[in-house]
Amino acid sequence: MNINLELTDKKAPVSGEVRMSTKNLSLYYGDFQALRDITLNIPENAITAVIGPSGCGKSTFLRLFNRMNDLITGVKVDGRVELDGINIYDRDIDVVELRKKVGMVFQKPNPFPMSVFENVAFGPRRHGRKNRMELEDVVEKSLKQAALWDEVKDKLGQSALALSGGQQQRLCIARVLAVEPEVILMDEPCSALDPIATLRIEDLMKSLAENYTIVIVTHNMQQAARVSDMSAFFMMEEDRAGILVEYGPTAELFTNPKDKRTEDYITGRFG
């Protein structure tokens, strides 16, 4: 069966420098095990896609990297999650500093009900930048990076909620960039957008990958194939715990999957 996925000719091969990683990681919501024994390395300045059926723990996995799971009561983490070799679940890790380094873009565009400018300036302001000139520079730079500047430069003072969905999502990306993170996590960033807005975000992701380490969770396998360098396929076991089935360069995983389950999934036999 021909799976007919458009595979981009990958620019530079993945350098192999590991930026983040998990080691024998398990996660529990109370008694329920959501992730089981996941070991995975995320390469620097590349896009790593996490794919898999609904409920297999993709989003939970992504939220490990900036400890967003901490906000949910009853979550327990076993094993290590590392950023540059440091276990971010160590007791002396400052979550605020971690989240400055590891930004996140959410599934539904969620700009604050403030002006475009204030949205982007929010992070820098919280981290001690008060100088108006300096903030203006950061906002402009971030919006340019997020390929939104030309569209909003005349309405920086207007409510961010007045922007279109795709613009809102790029604004959310700009908001993350303004904090100057090193890693950007994206949780199905295009699932609420139309195809054109989706393409724009994908282009943006590719250009950002030159300087940032990106991890994206996606439902859309074509998207994973189009944008990512590495792909991780997750699945549920009998007890609904998520496991990592296969992980490797995207081109390989999609054209020549080693695991039968991966093949079944990407050819659409289940999921």
Binding site: N66, M68, R99, F106, K108, N110, F112, F122, G123, R126
Partner: peptide, 27 residues
């Protein structure tokens, strides 16, 4: 106030207090 706003604020590295003061109360 939708929870998405709090999530976004936390994810940007804001503390609980900053989130309440700069996001929840204005919203």
């Amino acid at each position: 106030v939708p929870d998405e706003f709090r999530q976004a604020s936390f994810a940007l590295g804001a503390t609980k207090w900053e989130t309440i003061w700069h996001v929840c109360i204005p919203a």
